[in-house]
């Protein structure tokens, strides 16, 4: 069944109602303070209430009968989700590995992996692009700008 924008609005409105109420309640636990001395909970409390109210309006509005804009399918292609997931997981893997293995090596693996899996390239291209990127990034960030990127236990 094709979805319309008001369905999407309904879902996101519920999400924001949750967020707003969460922050409001949280604001009370860290002390809203008095008017003459507002505490740390002052801003979360009031902003949370405002967000909740606005989200309720969005929710109510979504039940109006009118010509709602038709939304495209959530994933444009059947295999879209694979590429999306691969990209996110690769970034997480990069983050987890690069303190251990060192910036240059993990950069090489990261680029090579994405090139090979998401839109598969041939090996020659993959290796050339990955090594060029790793070396250039190393030169710019470590040797030129002197940033303190982790070198890993291998020392580069």
């Amino acid at each position: 069944m094709e979805k319309k924008i008001n369905h999407y609005n309904r879902i996101s409105a519920l999400f924001f109602i949750g967020v707003g109420m969460f922050f409001s309640f949280y604001g009370r636990t860290v002390e809203i303070g008095a008017w003459s001395e507002p505490g740390p909970g002052f801003m979360p409390f009031w902003s949370g209430i405002i967000l909740t109210i606005m989200a309720v309006f969005l929710l109510l509005g979504s039940f109006k009968r009118k010509e709602w804009q038709v939304m495209p399918p959530f994933f444009p292609l059947a295999d879209s989700w694979k590429r999306v997931l691969t990209a996110f997981l690769s970034m997480v893997a990069y983050l987890l590995l690069f303190e251990l293995l060192g910036f240059t090596l993990v950069t090489f693996i990261f680029i090579a992996f994405l090139l090979k899996t998401v839109f598969p390239q041939n090996w020659k291209r993959t290796l050339i692009v990955a090594s060029a990127t790793a070396i250039l990034a190393r030169l710019i960030f470590i040797n030129f700008l002197r940033t303190q990127l982790p070198l890993g236990f291998l020392g580069f």
């Binding site: 680029i111 090139l115 390239q121």
Partner: peptide, 13 residues
């Protein structure tokens, strides 16, 4: 396909 891993890398670094 070649540009996107590099963009992601630059975001990470």
């Amino acid at each position: 396909p070649i540009l996107f891993p590099i963009i992601l890398l630059f975001c990470l670094i």
